[in-house]
Each structure stands twice: as C-alpha cells, then as structure tokens.
C-alpha cells in the first residue's frame, strides 16, 4: 500500500481521521497558501480562504474516494473557495468607501517583492475574478486547460481566450507603468 493509500485509509477510519487530517494540513498548507495568496493578494484574506478550504475538505471527506491525489482534490477546493471569496469581496468593495487603490501593495508588510513583482501582482489584482483564476492557474501553477475546465466549469476554448486576454492586459499594464 502506497503512502497516499495509507493516508486515505486513515482519513476514512473515524479513530484515525483527526490525526490524518492534521497531517494533511501540515503537508499541504504552504503550497495551497501561496496559490491562494496569488489570487487574493492580502495575507488576512489568504488565511481566511485557506482555512475555509480545509474546513470544506474536512466536511467533504466522506465523499473523497481517492480517485485523485489529495493535493489535486485540495487544489480544486481552494480554487473554488478563492473564486467565491473574490466575487464576494468585489461585491462588498463596490458598496464601500474602501477603494482598492488605498491598499498599497508596496506598503504591505507581508509583501516582499521587487518592482516587477509588485507590478505583476497589481496587474493580476485588476483582472476579473475568473480571469484572475485562469491566469494564475496557468501561469503560476502550470495547470492544463483540461484540468482548469473541470475545476471552473468553463470550456477549454473559453479558457484559452481568457488567458490570452489576461496576458495582454498584464503586459499593457507593464507598458503603462514604464
């Protein structure tokens, strides 16, 4: 039995489930955090989404049969949670006085990027929610369009077009900043 099969068996057994899930959190939190953080930008928001992801995973444990790797399964949950969060945040921002521009990335104590990284993250932050996901999943996570199509429920053709447009927007943002 492989290590992933053993972990799955421990997750499915009530007496070992808690310890096994704690191990899942320890093993996967850093990578998931960074993937989420790219999308939501701010640490506090990334923390909210990451914790939500694990809570949702815990609640869905009974339906996870090991057809995919745990990392893949968690990634899908994280991307959907991120999309839900982004849509909710955008709606709330449209009703508040808090302009997104007042949150200065350069002054964020939890952002340690150079000018190019700052520009890139700012450009990403301006993309519509789903397009943001498409871009990050493709560019940073190296996901195949077929995988993204299953996660986002969007056709491969539409995803390719969305990615292409996202790249153009980001490069245009770089040109304006230069």
């Amino acid at each position: 039995m492989s290590s992933s099969e053993k972990l799955l068996a421990r997750l499915q057994e009530p007496s070992t489930r808690n310890d096994a899930f704690a191990e899942v959190v320890r093993t996967h939190s850093r990578q998931l955090y960074m993937q989420i953080r790219r999308l939501v930008t701010w640490h506090d928001d990334a923390n909210d989404v990451l914790q939500n992801t694990f809570i949702k995973a815990w609640q869905a444990l009974d339906s996870f049969r090991g057809e995919s790797q745990i990392s893949t399964w968690l990634y899908r949950i994280a991307m959907n949670e991120s999309l839900t969060f982004l849509q909710k945040r955008n709606l709330e921002q449209s009703l508040t006085d808090n302009d997104a521009a007042t949150y200065d990335l350069a002054s964020d104590p939890y952002f340690d990027g150079d000018r190019a990284e700052q520009l890139l993250q700012e450009a990403i932050d301006l993309l519509p929610e789903k397009q943001k996901l498409v871009f990050c999943m493709k560019y940073f996570d190296g996901q195949k369009y077929e995988t993204m199509s299953q996660i986002l429920g969007t056709s491969v053709g539409a995803l390719k077009a969305s990615y292409h447009i996202a790249v153009k927007k980001i490069e245009s943002y770089f040109e304006e900043a230069d």
Binding site: R38, H43, N47, Q51, I55, Y110, F111, A116, Q121
Partner: peptide
Amino acid sequence: YNNNQHSPFKVPEGYFESLESNVMKRI
C-alpha cells in the same frame, strides 16, 4: 518575467506553525 525563483509573499511569524491547531480547533 521569471516566476520560478522567488515568492514575493511573506507571512506573520509562526503562521504556518499555528495554522494546523487553528484549523483543527475550528473542525
């Protein structure tokens, strides 16, 4: 743009160390 070498994001000290217990408490 080289996206493979450096993550520009930092976390508060001890964040990941306390994350597991925070999640398990919520569960």
